[in-house]
Design a binder for these strands. Structure first.
Lengths: 235, 235
DNA sequence: ACATTAAACAAACGACTGTTTACTTTGCGA
DNA sequence: TCGCAAAGTAAACAGTCGTTTGTTTAATGT
């Protein structure tokens, strides 16, 4: 890393997009938006270290310096990406959890797992821009080492994670806390690996099971994990 | 990538290590070995794209050109790393599986999972050289995109993977093949994420559960996965 | 009309990338 | 003791990296 580098001018406000002039057609995406879109896809595909800013700006048909201007740095770009995507996922998780807690009811384990997994696997899927890019990106960062990336990820999701561990614990009164924590960890692994969609299982099963098919993936995943969570605690 | 580049001289044979002169003390590791050791650790820690050859050769206290000399290229170094590590893991897996199939007995699901998971999590753990580095590296490559790396990984493990899917199917006669394949995929995710040891679960549980503690991890993991595998197939 | 300012741009910065070249040292068999 | 291939090395090569600079365009506020 070179230096902290204050921007020469104040950064433009996040939502400051001019309305489309003339017809109310789809507004041409701003430079900022185009960068975010292709960066999301390329980071996901090749990893943070695997793509250069030149590749991103070329693909977005945008000047190289635009990234410094709009996001300050490469890390700033990643941070902006997460600010735009992670928060909605965490919110949707909590919303779904609250939804099945209404009227003081205790939600089933399956409901909790669904509320946790579904937003992660479905939100931000934009087929017109190369598919579930953010989902892949998150999975990548989940296994990457202690970088700024991981801190961002932790900050974005730790809070909702704790809430879900609590909810699972409530749904499984007999289980020791530590057992639930281990199993939560296993669930994260299952989720991330499905999100990463490395292609390994497709080649191993001649395409019979495809983690990119989110509906089917969730349909198989939730009962599998629920059974694991409910099994007798060890030792 | 620059070019394929035939080596100027034939590569030295893999096992051509001179016996230690004088006392039978620990032979000073050859240049080749030192490169492999630190490359394993650094690739694992920062990913293939995250480390330069200069960082590796400096840490190994070895000349920069030694990598080209001994391995031909950066990818060649990774290939040599896998040739040294992956095969023993696959072999140990099949050995353990054969062991619990002796006398025509049908092994239990737990035995099969143990035979599959234990070698991956334990083999190649060298505390004196920065801990379970290869384990982390494998986890990283498992979520990385379609690079040479993933092809190497697939070639090294696909064969034994199919054998284990078959073994699990035999142990669970009631389950449709597709269900077993999905659950095998989920198991891979659990395994890789535990191997990656991203530190997320530690911070989430104040250190109570540590995926680096392999014995405990396996102890919790196998019953969890077994329960998932045994649960009723979905629709 | 003028000043201000966000946005976009081409060009360059120094550091670092994997790889190659040309050279020197080492060790062993004849 | 010579010969010769293996082993090891310093320096350079041709790029790419993330970042910075100085300038121009386009729109706003006064």
């Amino acid at each position: 890393m070179r230096r902290a580098s204050a921007l020469r001018t104040s950064r433009p406000k996040a939502g400051a997009v001019k309305p489309a002039r003339g017809r109310a057609a789809a507004a041409a995406p701003s430079v900022r938006e185009r960068i975010l879109i292709v960066a999301e896809r390329m980071f996901a595909e090749h990893g943070m270290e695997g793509v250069g800013l030149r590749a991103i700006t070329a693909a977005a048909r945008v000047n190289l310096a635009s990234i410094a201007y709009h996001f300050g740095s490469k890390d700033g770009l990643l941070e902006a990406l997460f600010a735009q995507r992670a928060a909605p996922i965490a919110q949707e998780r909590l919303r779904l959890l609250a939804l099945c807690c209404e009227d003081g009811k205790t939600p089933t384990l399956e409901q909790i797992l669904d509320a946790f997994l579904r937003p992660a696997l479905t939100l931000g899927v934009q087929p017109q821009f190369g598919g579930p890019a953010f989902v892949k990106l998150r999975a990548r960062l989940g296994t990457e080492p202690e970088t700024t990336a991981r801190k961002i990820l932790a900050k974005a999701f730790d809070q909702s994670s704790r809430k879900f561990i609590d909810a699972i614990a409530q749904a499984l009164p007999g289980q020791p806390r530590e057992e639930i924590e281990w199993r939560y960890h296993f669930m994260l692994g299952t989720m991330f690996y499905t999100m990463a969609n490395s292609g390994r299982i497709q080649s191993l099963t001649d395409g019979r099971c495809d983690p990119g098919d989110v509906k089917r993936a969730l349909h198989h995943m939730i009962p599998f994990l629920a059974a694991g969570f409910r099994s007798a605690p060890v030792s």
